[in-house]
Design a protein around this nucleic acid. Structure first.
Lengths: 141, 141
DNA sequence: CGAAAATTGGTAATAGGTTTCATTCCTGAT
DNA sequence: ATCAGGAATGAAACCTATTACCAATTTTCG
């Protein structure tokens, strides 16, 4: 699994305030924010920061193994928890909940491996309704 | 399971040549094509078709339950197999392989349910290298 | 057939993200 | 502490995938 040790090809990393703020914005929430959200958050302590800088740093932090992305449809969200884990997604409010990666191998994984496929990671998302949305939608909306 | 029977909110569907061609383009391949690919394909038998029409029809066919989308990063791909199934994705060549949905429940699913979450579907993708890319990359590229 | 409504092609507009470039900022060596 | 050189930044232009708009065509159905 890609660690944070910088490989050769990666350009030297400098320690800038905007980079630190971008990382912290993601790390200090469990909401798996979007780039836009991070931008607004960083702006609070650094009003002249540019959106491009936020995107560049998110990208760099992902390449450095300090952040992970999660993407569905047109939205990309960022996560400072880089350990492998699965998700529950509420299709109504967009809640993205981390769930531990419990059992080891899924049967189909074993089958793929035996057929010669090399598996590096998996993405497992459960999609449905969170408790709030479930009860909210049960009544008259 | 969402069938092709049109619900109330969906506007009446007419049977147009372009709609048929869009569906067939997706149904006659197992490559999970992109909208652009479908456009090029439909164009062969209908050179004046517009990209917008292709997008609209893909959207309509998805809403009607006749197609499914699969999305990762910035690419959306379409699939005429609407039964639930999982995928293997080659991170090198982009191969998207259908794999049957084998065993029933994954342990974390049971746990989520018991905590009050309502699960409607799941997305399970294994990501790695297909046989070709694996052996190709093993040598000197 | 003929009218009403869905659909289309062509094109403009968006959303989300990336690139460019002149300027500013870090860092490691002095 | 200073300084040179490469990174990183802000601002704005640019891209790509997708959607919206609208006048002109098709379908459908009585």
């Amino acid at each position: 699994m890609a660690s944070s040790g910088a490989p050769f090809s990666v350009p030297a990393r400098r320690d800038t305030r905007q980079r630190r703020l971008v990382y912290e914005a993601v790390a200090r929430t469990d909401s798996h924010p979007t780039a836009e959200w991070v931008f607004e958050r960083v702006r609070r302590s650094m009003p002249r920061v540019s959106l491009g800088t936020v995107y560049r740093n998110l990208q760099l932090l992902v390449a450095a193994g300090r952040l992970k992305t999660w993407t569905r449809g047109r939205t990309t969200r960022y996560d400072a928890d880089v350990e492998p884990h699965d998700h529950f997604v509420c299709r109504s409010c967009g809640l993205l909940l981390d769930i531990g990666r419990a059992s080891g191998t899924i049967s189909s994984e074993r089958r793929l491996r035996s057929r010669g496929y090399w598996i590096e990671t998996r993405v497992l998302d459960f999609i449905g309704l969170c408790r709030n949305c479930r009860s909210r939608l049960k009544d008259g909306r």
